[in-house]
Design a protein around this nucleic acid. Structure first.
Lengths: 107, 107
DNA sequence: AGCAAATACTAAGTATTACTTAGTATCGTG
DNA sequence: CACGATACTAAGTAATACTTAGTATTTGCT
C-alpha cells in the first residue's frame, strides 16, 4: 500500500534512467556527499522525502534538464519544456507566438 | 544586503499582484489558516522560507496558474507555460511538433 | 549454481527548516 | 491625523529532511 508519487519523484527517476546513472552517482554529480548520496536519492525517488528547490536545481544541472521539467505533471508539456532546452531567445519568442495563436484557434 | 530571491518567490509575487490579492487573502485561498496566512505568504515572497511542492501546488490552483510556471527562470518559457494553461491535448501536441521543428531550423 | 560487487532501499536519530504566534512597521484613505 | 488594511519580522515550536548504519536485491562473472 503506497501513496502516489509526486511528479518530481517520477521525473527524477525518468531522467536518471534515461542517462543510465545510478542513484548514488547522480547524487554525487549533484554535489551530495558520497556517503549519503545513495540514501538521499533513493528517498527522493521513492517519495519518502522531497528535494527542496535548490536540490532540484542542482539535479537539473547534473542531468542537463530544465528545472521546470520536474514539475510538469502533463507529459506533453514536459516534452515541450525539454525540447526548448537549448532554444535561443528568438526560438522561444517564436514558440510563444505560435502558442498564443493556437489559443485563438480553438483546435 | 540581501541574497537574490528564488524564482518561486518572484513568480509568486508577480502572479499575486496580477490578480490584485493581498498576501493574506491568497494564503487563505490556498488553504492556510487565517492566523498564519499573512506571515507565511510574506516569508515565501521575501525568500525567508521556501514553500514545498505541495504548497506551491495549492497556490498554483488558487491562482489558476500552471505549477511549472513558478519554476521558470526564463521569462519567455514562463509565458509559454502560462499560454498553454487551458490548451487541449491536441493543441499541446501541435505546440510540441512546432518546437521540435524549430530545433532543427536553428533560427 | 554460487559468489562478489554494485545498486537499491530502509529505519531511526540528529540536524535543519518551515510554521505559528505575537507583534511592529508601513501604506492608503476618509 | 487616525484607523484599517497590508506588509513584514523575530523567536520558539513543530515538522521535515539528512546522515548513518545497515539490510535487500540485482547484475555479472567463473
Amino acid at each position: 500500500m503506497s501513496i502516489a508519487l509526486h511528479t518530481v519523484a517520477i521525473r527524477l527517476r525518468q531522467a536518471r534512467e534515461q542517462l543510465g546513472l545510478s542513484q548514488k552517482k547522480l547524487g554525487i554529480l549533484a554535489g551530495i556527499d558520497e556517503f549519503s548520496a545513495s540514501a538521499r536519492m533513493n528517498q527522493y525517488e521513492r517519495g519518502k522525502h522531497l528535494p527542496d528547490v535548490y536540490m532540484v536545481a542542482r539535479l537539473a544541472k547534473a542531468l542537463s534538464i530544465p528545472e521546470p521539467y520536474f514539475y510538469c505533471e502533463d507529459e506533453t508539456l514536459a516534452l515541450i519544456v525539454l525540447a526548448l532546452k537549448d532554444a535561443t531567445q528568438l526560438q522561444k519568442k517564436s514558440a510563444l507566438e505560435f502558442v498564443k495563436a493556437l489559443d485563438k484557434l480553438k483546435l
